[in-house]
Design a binder for these strands. Structure first.
Length: 961
DNA sequence: ACCGCCGGGTGCC
DNA sequence: ACCGCCGGGTGCC
């Protein structure tokens, strides 16, 4: 009840779209990301929306107040502790009531009514926030003092002071000697100090940035013990993976108090925050595995699942011995899926026989486990034998893709058993604690990777029950899910289940372990996805992420929230104890942050050392820039388009309307970049003032198509996610339909475009018509080459001559360009595959499979769309990468290269970047370089205006205006 | 709360 | 006795 209450008090605010200054700290952390303009605007709105409250307020005044009614509540508070003050307008005795709660969320009392009456108006009207610290008197039975600090915008200072004075309260402002400074008895870290009194010299922006960069570095100490995985894992672990396994196991089995908690007397103290509670704080079993890509986070996690069921004992698994166990009865059921492909067999093992894999632990683990487990299996198997429901993969396409992968790559392996039995009502599989299953949530793009990896790393004669909870026909039986060893699902499935309030089976299961793969994708706490993730019930929680902090310190909040690392899972405390002090340059705050991260994170980079050797020895990686000179004809056309574009953009500059005409500017730049690749890419020109509504409509459709196909990886500026049901406004900005409709709904007649503040209406939104209406159709025209295509083909042919086994990735941001490249590749007899965003999972899996196949005659080239697939793809058979066009975001290019330059790559990797001389492409590269230098210099504050200016400067430079 | 406040009991010393 | 004083009951908002 009380915790419910405190939770509601820290509900994140609905992001508002008003422009507002941002914090310097956030700004310079963002600098590394050179992305599209709209993304940057999106970032602005994101930060503005979320931090209006916490981040732009200064101290307005302080006063000492009284907390009363202590005897009615259980919340305890110590000398020097922070308390939160929450309005309670529904209080039947006083609608001005202000509740005082301690950091643990327990109510301590109320603010005395006279003061509450004065404060209520100020809080309700957001003139200021009020933070409280209890200076002494914590043992009082009936009331205690509290030092209140009012924080708010400078412009509200007068109003706050006047209002308080009208109620007979005089706010102090002398923070150096005032009550705000009241003694902090037990405060070894000094973190309870009011932020106005910075103990030492504040950190400079430079120091802060470097500290931040290093936040996740060198988290190796005391994490060097190694642990062997259970026998059921057939892949030998590398030393660093054994260390991770050991660390993760100890994090899961620790019966210690959570990090930073100590027991003193009858109370539990948090040494970091000095808070004390009566109840033993919930254990935090888990943490963040933040190893670099390619270090084997997946394998390590599989090893953890299999090796640490309870207390370091392996997960009891059936052995489906092909030979060693004579008593094994074995049934095959080769039924067919709808796709017509043969499903894997399902193996039944008799209940009396148990896997030898877990024999060592059989005695110590809850005796119920093996028996029940075996029973379940038998039932399931019988059902399966009925041929009724053999494949649990409900998405036929995807199922087919997986079939293909399992039959082609490792035909004999049957260790990952996918079952579909619906043995409802069975409590099978639950251990003593009631939880057996591990839930893995991942982006769709790495789903198949997880299944492949389970197949690869599990011994063939052991059955690990893995249920893929995906697709329309997914089995929603809670008992079925709970009885699995592993349930695999995607963030989308999880949040759509969660959104349909009716029932979310995943939220009804008590998981042994929940693993968030690529956990950084959940970072906006107000997104449904985040809520869905936070509501999962689990004993242990893990986040896997190569980049745990993507944009700013705030990202970490979401992760701590998921891990339930109290009190940082509540926004107010996270802000007061960590984010605000660090942002303010407080050294102690930073120390605390570092300690926090260190306690729960393991991170190794490709260059981290284990026993003096780097963790991973990757082959060399060399980058060549291949300059391309346009033919005379191409150059003529290019210059013509450039002049047109420059005129238009020049006019925007004169009008000062570059940002409001962003879509046009982007369109022009895209057209130029397309010309650099191939003239057929370019759609027809859509400028000029529209006359009729249908012309306007057509123009908008052209624009949205251009934006969506520009390869600039547009995000919706409202939800910051990839565009869903994209629509374009009359002011030519693109959003998800649900997002922009929500804005219009809430702002009613006043609704304005979040990006340019133009008036918008629901009926004026124009839908994206889909791929069919794309501009610049390639088909129909007679195929012709271009200078860049010729340059690529020349190199590819030379490469094939030298070594026909070499495989290459040909990467472009324009899928249309990939279409064009297919023609000469076919003509010259190259066998190739293709991977782009429009492909189904089945097709993607097959494309990857084909490329990874190294038998003679297998494809040697993959045409790859830059934004396809995201991270996690494994394309290690390829050792050459051709970047056909420069990306706005160099990180996207690196990521692409990392798909082959990773663990498992045996050859040196050669990267060739094609750049057209004297063109936007060359200018883009220059700007990229300049940006990287700036980042390296760790510059200080940068306002959104500066940022916008630098964007405008970029456009100038690109267009040579 | 070893207080303040309220309201009933009481009323020379 | 329309007061003062005493002492018991009571007590967040």
């Amino acid at each position: 009840m009380q915790s419910n209450f405190s939770r509601s008090s820290v509900q994140p605010h609905t992001p508002s779209i008003s422009a507002s200054p941002r914090y310097a700290f956030i700004d310079f952390l963002d600098v590394g990301r050179a992305e599209t303009i709209s993304q940057e605007i999106a970032n602005l709105t994101e930060d503005a929306g979320q931090d209006l409250e916490t981040e732009e307020s200064g101290e307005i005044g302080y006063i000492q107040g009284t907390v009363v009614g202590l005897r009615y509540y259980s919340g305890v508070v110590n000398r020097g502790e922070m308390v939160s003050l929450v309005r309670e307008p529904q209080n039947p005795y006083d609608r001005n009531a202000v509740v005082v709660a301690n950091v643990y969320g327990s109510q301590v009392g109320h603010i005395k009514k006279e003061l509450a009456a004065a404060m209520a108006y100020i809080i309700d009207n957001k003139l200021a926030r009020v933070e409280g610290i209890v200076p002494y008197g914590e043992t009082n039975k009936f009331s205690m003092p509290v030092n209140l600090t009012f924080l708010g915008k400078e412009e509200n200072r007068e109003a706050v002071h006047n209002h308080m004075r009208r109620h007979g309260f005089r706010l102090g402002t002398d923070f150096k000697g005032g009550t705000a400074k009241t003694s902090f008895g037990r405060d070894p870290l000094g973190l309870l100090k009011s932020s106005s009194q910075i103990s030492a010299i504040p950190l400079t922006a430079e120091e802060l940035k470097s500290a931040f960069d290093k936040l996740f570095d060198d988290l190796m100490e005391d994490k060097t013990r190694e642990m062997e995985p259970a026998e059921a894992v057939c892949t030998p672990l590398l030393p660093h993976q054994k260390q991770a396994l050991s660390w993760m196991t100890s994090r899961e089995n620790s019966s210690d108090l959570p990090p930073f908690w100590e027991q003193k007397g009858g109370l539990y103290f948090n040494v970091l925050t000095n808070f004390a509670v009566k109840e033993r704080p919930e254990k935090v079993l888990g943490g963040i595995l933040a190893d670099d890509m390619g270090l084997g986070k997946t394998l390590t996690t599989i090893a953890l699942i299999v090796s640490n069921f309870h207390n370091g004992k392996p997960l009891p698994l059936e052995k489906c011995g092909e030979s060693s166990e004579p008593s094994t009865s074995r049934k095959k059921s080769a039924s067919k899926g709808k796709s017509g492909e043969v499903s894997e067999e399902v193996v039944e093992s008799s209940p009396s026989k148990r896997s030898h894999v877990d024999s060592a632990s059989a005695d110590t683990i809850d005796k119920d486990v093996p028996r029940k487990k075996a029973k379940t299996t038998k039932k399931t198997s019988k059902k399966s034998a009925n041929t009724k429901e053999v494949i649990l993969l409900d998405d036929d396409d995807f199922a087919a893709a997986l079939e293909c992968s399992s039959t082609q790559v490792m035909p004999p392996k049957k260790n990952v058993k996918k079952r579909s039995g619906a043995d409802k009502g069975s409590s099978a599989g639950t251990g003593g604690s009631g939880a057996r299953a591990t839930l893995i949530v991942c982006p769709l793009s790495v789903l198949s990777n997880w299944l492949d990896q389970f197949e690869q790393h599990m011994r063939a004669d052991v059955t690990l029950n893995v249920y893929l909870y995906y697709g329309a026909e997914r089995n929603r039986s809670v008992s079925l899910l709970a009885s699995q060893d592993v349930v695999l699902t995607t963030y989308n499935v999880l949040s759509s289940d969660f959104g349909n309030k009716a029932s979310s089976p995943l939220h009804k299961v008590n998981w042994l372990r929940v693993v968030l793969d690529e956990g950084h994708v959940v970072r906006n706490p107000s997104a449904l996805q985040s809520k869905a993730v936070l509501e999962l019930q689990s004993e242990r929680r893990w986040i896997l992420s190569g980049t745990p902090i993507q944009n700013s310190l705030k990202d970490l909040y979401m992760l701590l929230s998921f891990l339930k690392l109290k009190p940082f899972d509540v926004k107010e405390w996270w802000s007061r104890i960590i984010q605000r002090p660090v942002t303010m340059g407080d050294r102690v705050g930073l120390q605390n942050l570092q300690a926090l991260v260190k306690g729960i994170t393991l991170r190794r980079t490709k260059t981290s050392k284990v026993d003096g050797r780097t963790v991973v020895q990757l082959p060399e990686r060399t980058v060549f820039v291949q300059h391309v000179t346009l033919s005379e004809e191409e150059r003529e056309k290019y210059e013509q388009v450039k002049t047109e574009g420059r005129n238009i953009i020049g006019r925007y500059f004169q009008e000062g309307s570059v940002m409001t005409n962003y879509a046009d500017v982007l369109a022009i730049l895209v057209r130029l970049r397309q010309y650099c690749c191939h003239p057929s890419l370019v759609g027809k020109y859509t400028g000029g003032d529209p006359v009729t509504p249908s012309e306007l409509r057509e123009r908008l459709i052209n624009k949205i198509t251009l934006v969506l196909n520009s390869g600039s990886d547009e995000e919706c500026a409202i939800c910051l996610d990839s565009l869903r049901q994209p629509v374009i406004t009359y002011c030519a900005h693109v959003f998800c339909r649900p997002c922009i409709c929500e804005v219009i709904r809430s702002e009613k007649e006043q609704a304005r475009c979040p990006l340019c503040r133009a008036q918008i209406k629901t009926k004026e939104l124009v839908e994206y018509p889909g791929e069919e209406l794309e501009t610049g159709s390639v088909t129909g025209e007679k195929w012709r080459s271009s200078s860049k295509v010729d340059a690529l083909m020349t190199i590819l042919l030379k490469l094939r001559n030298e070594d026909p086994t070499v495989k290459s990735l040909v990467v472009s941001q324009f899928t249309k360009f990939l279409d064009i490249l297919e023609v000469p590749l076919r003509e010259y007899g190259f066998s190739f595959t293709r991977l782009d965003g429009s492909m189904t999972q089945k097709a993607r899996a097959k494309a990857i499979q084909d490329l990874q196949d190294s038998s003679p005659g297998s494809p040697t080239i993959m045409l790859l769309s830059l934004k396809a697939g995201g991270v996690g793809l494994n394309l290690t058979t390829a050792s050459h990468v051709f970047m056909m066009d420069p990306a706005w975001n160099p990180a996207a290019e690196d990521q692409c290269v990392d798909r082959c330059h990773r663990l498992g790559q045996s050859r040196d990797v050669v990267i060739t970047k094609f750049i057209v001389k004297d063109s936007v492409e060359e200018n883009m590269v220059k700007i990229q370089k300049k940006k990287q230098e700036l980042v390296a210099k760790a510059f200080g504050t940068k306002t959104p205006q500066d940022r916008k200016q630098s964007r405008i400067d970029d456009i100038r430079a690109l267009m040579e205006i």
